[in-house]
Design a protein around this nucleic acid. Structure first.
Lengths: 157, 157
DNA sequence: TATTGTTATACTCTATAACTATA
DNA sequence: TATAGTTATAGAGTATAACAATA
């Protein structure tokens, strides 16, 4: 070191500007999404679940009998990528796959009791983690945010 | 086909529920982020830029002299992943790298005139694409959304 | 001929370890 | 000894093509 005190560096800390970038909704969405996603990732790892696996399980719990192609559409993912996830959920005995009578190409997905219980518990933990991360927002603000996000997503096709 | 009319299928279209998932901010953020990100991706491809490359360029334009480690911190990415991006921006003659006198380990990044012009033009296009995607939101609602996202991101550490 | 679930595979993005040159 | 930039590489995550079974 030559002449700088460490504190001086911290005090002179970057007054970086995001002039143009900061006005873009995409940039703001990403900045907000990252820590929330990270918190959910951490919480769900304790359940041996990925975030996307939890999303699948949750949709299956709330929509018994849904088939994989519908699930893929709903979560905006490709069918092939769903296979390993469904396999895993089945291995963990959280869901069951049973052939649909009227169309034997399809598998009806249903959550087991174990799956429903785990979903409920994990959802509470994720919600709590979100509360911790989004602590700056009041309940009203959170509802407001969700309403705006929903309106944005609905408008986009 | 056995007895179903195609229209019947569409009319009976999935009344799928997102009961629990829909109450999670992370899920809502992701649903809103995807189409916006996709729109930006498409627009910037015409400039031979990735979304993250545009973000880098934009930050450099607004913060002449910023160095790579600071840029990486600001955009929350790892230093190694920045190298190819900076290389690419330099190859396109959008930025310059010059050694810092007082610390020759560092490179000061600055945008060229070409870089500044391209950034301004691309930013307008991205903004227009966002307007198209987020068309459902009024200007006030967009400002409100950005304020809430900012508050969320600031609260999260 | 079209669709569901599947396999194999490739592509993109991100993360980690270790090197060099400077400090 | 620590840091900036770099290299090489590994690991997620996602996307595409083609197949068997069924419609």
């Amino acid at each position: 070191m030559t002449e700088q005190k460490p504190e001086a560096i911290d005090t002179d800390a970057p007054p970086f500007r995001e002039n143009v970038l900061g006005e873009l909704i995409g940039y703001r969405l990403r900045r907000a999404y990252l820590p929330v996603q990270s918190a959910a990732h951490q919480v769900l790892a304790a359940y041996n679940l990925r975030v996307v696996s939890f999303s699948c399980l949750s949709i299956i719990v709330d929509n018994p009998g849904i088939v994989q192609s519908q699930l893929a559409d709903l979560l905006q993912m490709e069918r092939p990528n769903l296979v390993v996830i469904i396999d895993h959920l089945e291995t963990l005995e959280l869901i069951t796959r049973t052939k649909v009578q009227r169309d034997r190409r399809r598998y009806a997905l249903k959550a087991t009791l174990k799956g429903r219980r785990l979903r409920d518990k994990a959802a509470k933990d994720v919600r709590a983690a979100e509360e911790a991360v989004a602590g700056g927002l009041t309940v009203d603000e959170q509802a407001q945010l969700i309403a705006l996000l929903d309106k944005l997503q609905t408008g986009a096709k």
